[in-house]
Design a protein around this nucleic acid. Structure first.
Length: 785
DNA sequence: CTAGGGTTAG
């Protein structure tokens, strides 16, 4: 009794007068009872109202009616306080009923009162009612009370142990649940089916595979093998422990799987990355006429998104309409996502527009759908119209800009985000690092580094890898290397690949090979590693090593995806093995624009320009849409083939037919095309109509051609303009750095510089300045300026 | 009288 009073008084949350009054009330009742017991030696056997006699019995009956009336009107608190108006036990069924209602209302105070009434007025409360009390405490999350009662019980039965196991397992104390189960087993108490449910749930959350196998054996030994719920839990345990073979075997053993069983097997397959298997099982379920849960439909849809299963997605959509799941929040969110991820944005939008109520996730799915399909303008429209936004919404929009290399827009959004959003998360931080890398903005990157340090993102692997990538892409290899060593205790293969590709990107090919050697001591290289290594080989003309990697990939059954094939085509063509390139190209069933571009540029490097124009036609026949790089290759072909008119046609169709904005390289190619073949009228006309002032290398090109064809007027014009570039400052060079180096290097016929400049963001500025100056000096000398 | 699964978006 004093325990009960103490409980009220030590309630730390919601400590107010009510508690004190309750405590005093309890205490008074207690005194009254003691008095009655001493006077009337109240010591009945199993105390029920039926066994009591006379006035007590009628009092209990009246009380029961009052309590039940209060309960009918939903007044639990009143019902329980009325209980205390009589110092007599009520019918055990009423106690059980009260415990159950308290549990479902999570009314902890009432549970304590009912328990106190029970133990005060029923001299020997039956074990089953105390078990109900433990269960009620468990449902209210009061494990301390549950455990105290459990420990103080004079007798226990299987139900008591079960109540304790269930209470711990349902409140997330899996370890304690398993410990209680272990004690129970040691005490020789046989577990019931329900107990195993709690035990298996705890095994699943602690990923205790070894214990699960033992429990599995016990389940079979006790003859519960046919229980669907235990079977489903076992499928769940094996699935969560990543033992999909065992999970599947267990699943196949279940004779009549129910909706939950199907949900588990579909979900676990999805989590393990077996999207196709997940969808296959879902269809199997439908074929067996089982009605799926909304979650299962959602899981199947997410599985479709994972492998771009458009046709499967449409079929599931049909089913959704048939079983009337269209308006379900979770299902409709996943449905929009499937259409968006499979690229059918019109359909996604239709579903979105037809929804009677749209939630935050619907809006965000739509933003992400547009953003990741490159339609950032539409994504932004939706984003701006959103009634509310979460971190995920902001991230979706930002990811869209980052994914499509719209760095300025990304930066603007980040600033907006700073003013409108208080919280950021790991994805935001990673994305801002990607933007820093994209803009080569080392200062921004360093700020994020500091932010990470202050806000505890330091030890998050994916954020740490993004930071490493940022330092690498911004060209600060020393920082990258330092951070990489700081990551020693938690880095993974992605970290190694990021470091490797940083060295490769900066053409530090020999160093990259050393890193490759080091990384093999720690992790197993992936296909990303090999794609990078092939680029390294291409850079240092290491055709033997390139061939070895190719062979290694084939021998070890690596998936030669489009990226690897692109790298192979590139490597072979740079190593002057164009036939090898062609073989890889022909062996690729579905060719993308990058692969076509690699082969076309390969032809250019191997002086096979005439093939480029033919390839261009074949590419169009193949239904692949050319991009700006394709046109760069085509224009280069026109230059070396002397196809001036054709070149002009291609340049015009670039913007007119393909809606590609011509880049500096395209303008430069046209100037080279006209200049090299002496088309000065067209050249002048072209330069005049350009939407920007000619750059120094363009003028250099004009100057060169003029010199070649003795066009003094144009040559002078070019060199006068070139003079203004004499005081060229380094900030200008950063903007045009890559471009300048490639032009100057090409002018100097320096292969080393040519290959460097082509892939390198960071350039040797001093070298460029030096080359620029010699160039300008020579111009001056020629025209005696 | 008590059990199992699960929250979609970056």
């Amino acid at each position: 009794m004093n325990n009960t009073i103490q409980k009220y008084l030590t309630q730390t949350h919601n400590f107010n007068n009510e508690f004190i009054i309750q405590a005093i009330h309890c205490y008074l009742v207690h005194l009254l009872v003691s008095l009655m017991r001493s006077n009337y030696s109240f010591n009945g056997e199993p105390t029920t109202p039926c066994s009591s006699k006379g006035a007590t019995s009628s009092q209990a009956k009246a009380l029961t009616t009052t309590i039940i009336n209060h309960l009918r009107l939903g007044r639990l608190g009143k019902a329980v306080s009325v209980l205390f108006s009589a110092p007599v036990p009520v019918h055990f069924a009423l106690y059980a009923h009260l415990f159950r209602i308290c549990a479902s209302n999570k009314a902890i105070v009432e549970v304590r009162k009912v328990e106190s009434h029970l133990v005060s007025f029923a001299p020997t409360p039956p074990v089953f009612l105390l078990n109900r009390a433990i269960e009620a405490y468990g449902k209210c999350g009061c494990l301390v009370d549950a455990r105290e009662l459990f420990d103080e019980m004079p007798q226990r039965d299987g139900g008591s142990w079960n109540a304790m196991v269930t209470a711990y397992s349902q409140n997330g104390y899996a370890g304690k649940a398993l410990a209680v189960f272990s004690d129970m087993h040691k005490s020789g108490v046989f577990a019931a089916e329900v107990t195993f449910a709690g035990v298996l749930a705890s095994c699943a959350s602690t990923l205790a595979l070894w214990l699960s196998r033992q429990v599995h054996a016990l389940v079979l030994k006790y003859g519960f093998g046919g229980n669907v719920i235990l079977g489903s839990s076992l499928v769940d345990v094996y699935g969560k422990c990543r033992r999909m073979g065992d999970a599947r075997r267990m699943f196949d053993e279940i004779e009549r799987p129910n909706a939950v069983t199907w949900n588990v097997i579909v979900r676990r397959n999805l989590e393990m990355g077996n999207g196709k298997e997940s969808v296959f099982l879902f269809f199997k379920m439908i074929c067996l006429n089982a009605r799926p849960l909304t979650f299962t439909v959602s899981n199947a849809l997410v599985a479709c998104s994972s492998f771009r299963g458009f046709r499967e997605g449409i079929q599931i959509h049909g089913l959704i309409i048939k079983i009337n799941f269209e308006e379900d929040e979770v299902v409709s969110c996943s449905l929009i996502d499937v259409y968006a991820k499979c690229g059918d944005l019109v359909c996604a939008r239709t579903i979105f527009d037809l929804l009677s109520t749209k939630n935050l996730i619907h809006w965000t799915s739509m933003v992400s759908g547009y953003a990741m399909s490159g339609k950032t303008r539409q994504a932004r429209e939706i984003f701006d119209r959103m009634p509310e936004r979460s971190v995920v919404s902001w991230n979706a929009m930002l990811a869209g800009y980052a994914h499509n290399s719209q760095w300025d827009e990304a930066m603007e959004l980040i600033n907006l985000m700073c003013n409108n959003m208080r919280d950021t998360d790991r994805v935001t931080v990673s994305l801002i690092l990607n933007v820093s890398a994209g803009l080569s903005d080392l200062e921004l990157g360093k700020q994020v580094h500091g932010y990470m340090y202050r806000h505890g993102f330091y030890s998050d692997l994916s954020v740490a890898n993004a930071l490493l990538d940022m330092y690498g892409k911004c060209g600060n290899l020393r920082k990258a290397r330092a951070w990489f060593y700081e990551m020693s205790y938690f880095r993974d293969m992605v970290s190694w690949n990021a470091l490797l590709s940083s060295y490769a990107r900066h053409k530090m090919s020999e160093e990259a090979l050393v890193i490759f050697w080091e990384m093999q001591q720690e992790v197993t290289p992936s296909k990303f590693t090999f794609a990078t290594l092939l680029a390294v080989c291409a850079n240092i003309f290491a055709c033997e090593q390139g061939k070895q990697i190719h062979g290694f990939l084939i021998r070890n059954g690596y998936d030669l995806d489009i990226v690897i094939r692109g790298a192979l085509v590139d490597m072979y063509s740079k190593c002057r093995l164009l036939e090898y390139s062609l073989n890889v190209f022909i062996g690729t069933s579905v060719k993308d624009v990058v692969l076509w571009n690699s082969l076309m540029l390969g032809c250019y490097h191997n002086k096979q320009s005439e093939a480029i124009l033919k390839l261009f036609e074949l590419m169009k026949e193949d239904g692949v849409k050319p991009d700006s790089t394709t046109f760069q290759a085509v224009l280069l072909a026109c230059i070396s083939q002397g196809c001036v008119k054709l070149g002009r046609q291609y340049f015009n169709s670039l913007s007119q037919d393909y809606f590609i904005i011509p880049q500096l390289e395209h303008y430069e190619s046209m100037i080279k095309l006209y200049g090299l073949h002496g088309f000065f009228d067209e050249l002048e006309d072209f330069v005049e109509k350009m939407p920007f002032q000619p750059t120094a290398p363009m003028l250099g090109r004009v100057f060169d051609s003029s010199k070649e064809y003795n066009n003094t007027r144009l040559g002078k014009w070019a060199s006068v303009l070139l003079q203004s570039f004499g005081q060229v400052d380094t900030s200008l060079l950063v903007d045009f750095g890559t471009f300048l180096v490639s032009q100057i290097a090409e002018y100097c016929s320096d292969t080393k510089y040519f290959t460097r400049a082509k892939y390198c963001r960071e350039v040797d500025l001093l070298k460029v300045l030096e080359l620029m100056n010699t160039y300008i000096i020579r111009a001056h000398q020629f025209f005696e300026l």
